[in-house]
Design a protein around this nucleic acid. Structure first.
Lengths: 103, 103
DNA sequence: AGCTCAGTTCGATATTTCTCGAACTTCCGA
DNA sequence: TCGGAAGTTCGAGAAATATCGAACTGAGCT
């Protein structure tokens, strides 16, 4: 798997994103990425087996939630924040529990 | 099933809500409820078999997304907008605000 | 009571997803 | 070039979900 397949921004589907976010393990990953920026897979495993996490990363990746790239011996994951904010404004913020600007 | 079981507001879980919203048929229901207010089940079936829809209503109900009550011979569903907005501010708005099918 | 309508429950099947060990690939340092 | 570290893929079993027809229930009408 030389490089991963990521959906283009306009191919990201809301239902798929919601599905990807509906698993506690995956939501943890997303929260941690939001809090800490790019992370390797190992930094995000929460003590779960690598093969399980690899599956979850794939779901997140193919839904368009995260972007994974090879960086030397590790894989670095980032949240596709710009794309998601652009497509579904407010979604990530609400899921991450960030306080929405009050007026 | 004299009356339905609905989770109390504080028992509503984000992952479950996201899961409930991650199915196109269920998302359609939620969108229509948001647009039109309370609706009977029959008004929301989108041409799908009743038993399938009943399943989807149950998923939405048990996740805390909709509230269903008996009203004479029909069942009336409403979005639990206040509860959801309170628990996850902005979530519903972002999910409902998706640009539909640009072509 | 009998009928109909609205919806639910049951049951069976098909599909998907989750989980995790084991084997594999790639990259890099010694 | 050998070995370890980081992840992925494969495979298999378990569990959850989707779908939909058929049977059922409850309410209201005549």
């Amino acid at each position: 798997m030389r490089s991963f397949k990521h959906p283009k921004r306009d191919d990201i589907e809301l239902t798929r994103v919601l599905y990807a976010l509906s698993d506690p393990a995956r939501l943890d990953v997303v929260r941690q990425l939001a809090a800490e920026g790019a992370c390797t897979c190992a930094a995000l495993d929460g003590g779960r087996p690598k093969s399980s996490m690899s599956h979850h990363f794939r779901v997140l990746r193919e839904a368009g939630v995260i972007f994974t790239e090879h960086e030397g011996p590790t894989h670095v994951n980032e949240l596709r924040r710009d794309d998601l904010d652009n497509l579904f404004p407010g979604l990530l913020a609400s899921v991450l529990g960030e306080r929405i600007k009050k007026r």
